[in-house]
Design a protein around this nucleic acid. Structure first.
Lengths: 67, 67
DNA sequence: ACTTTTTGTCATATATAATTGACACTTTTA
DNA sequence: TAAAAGTGTCAATTATATATGACAAAAAGT
């Protein structure tokens, strides 16, 4: 699970307005938030910049090594 | 410019052996290293894991704000 | 010098990311 | 409570990521 929705809401953006700022279709944002597919790196970077964050924060799953 | 080549060499891997470990064609690694296209997020994550690093290190350009 | 490995690149084919338009349902706001 | 905005999803299309096979040239190893 990525954290796009969480950071989008922090910025008070709708899927539609985020899509506009990023320059993609609204459906693309929706699919990414719901982990329905595999976005391109450039798209991930654009989203991260618009949301004022970075790739690791949005897309890097920290595996917990606690037993 | 990404840092895949740099981290691949740190691990003493050829493009071919990295491609094998990641499970893609060698050409795909070559194209990524030479910034010829836009890989998918899942592929970036696989590469980062095989190279023992993370998304930001390999693919996040730090813009220098020094004047 | 020769051989083997590695890299860059081409051309063609396939899988899938991303677009567009639409509709139903939910949530917010007037 | 009605209108508007936001979300999930479907189907069809287009753009492009990735695969496969191949070849030349450079680099590394013997």
């Amino acid at each position: 699970m990525n954290r796009v929705r969480e950071y989008r809401k922090k910025q008070k953006l709708s899927q539609f307005s985020l899509a506009e700022k990023v320059g993609v279709a609204r459906q693309t944002i929706n699919l990414i938030e719901n982990d329905k597919y595999n976005p391109s790196l450039n798209l991930c970077i654009s989203i991260a910049k618009v949301l004022g964050t970075d790739l690791n924060t949005l897309f890097w799953e920290v595996e917990d090594n606690e037993s």
